[in-house]
């Protein structure tokens, strides 16, 4: 433990808020821990995985009550994913910290660029549609 307990708690809260809002908490919590609090990457990964379990259990119960949860679709994704997940976690234990963090960095950059571009395109389309609908009748 290199920093005060409060900093670790705050990092957790920031990541949790993002996760709770459905924006992917781990993708922010892991870099926050490794870049600002000098936590080892695998430690950060383990913390993220462990803290996700109680969080998502509660979320699942709430979602199931609201009938937003499709169990069959969840299973079709979870079953094949479990296989690669187990293999890759075992593999990650053997790989050096630097390789993993570079891989994660590339993963983050790719995801963020794709999402930024798609959101930007979406926003432009929405603005365009708004302008179109405000035009006089023959143009709509």
């Amino acid at each position: 433990m290199n920093h005060s307990a409060l900093l670790y708690l705050l990092a957790g809260i920031a990541g949790g808020i993002m996760g709770g809002m459905g924006l992917g908490g781990g993708t922010l919590l892991i870099p926050a821990l490794t870049l600002f609090l000098d936590v080892d990457g695998k430690q950060a990964a383990a913390i993220n995985l462990i803290s996700f379990i109680p969080m998502s259990l509660v979320a699942c119960i709430i979602h199931a009550k609201n009938k937003l949860l499709d169990f069959r679709k969840a299973l079709t994704l979870a079953l094949p994913a479990c296989a690669t997940c187990a293999l890759c976690s075992l593999f990650a234990q053997k790989v050096s910290e630097n390789t993993l963090s570079s891989g994660f960095a590339v993963f983050l950059i790719c995801l963020a660029s794709v999402m930024l571009v798609s959101r930007a395109v979406e926003s432009v389309k929405k603005i365009k549609a708004k302008i179109c609908s405000s035009l006089p009748h023959p143009y709509v």
Binding site: Y8, G16, I17, L49
Partner: peptide
């Protein structure tokens, strides 16, 4: 994967509990 990471000795309880607590508080707030 949490089980595999734990078995690999990748959880440091000295700060791990603080972060996990924070995530749960933040998750409810979020």
């Amino acid at each position: 994967s949490a089980a595999i990471y734990l078995a690999g000795g990748n959880f440091d309880p000295s700060f791990g509990y603080y972060v996990c607590g924070g995530v749960i508080i933040g998750g409810i707030a979020g």
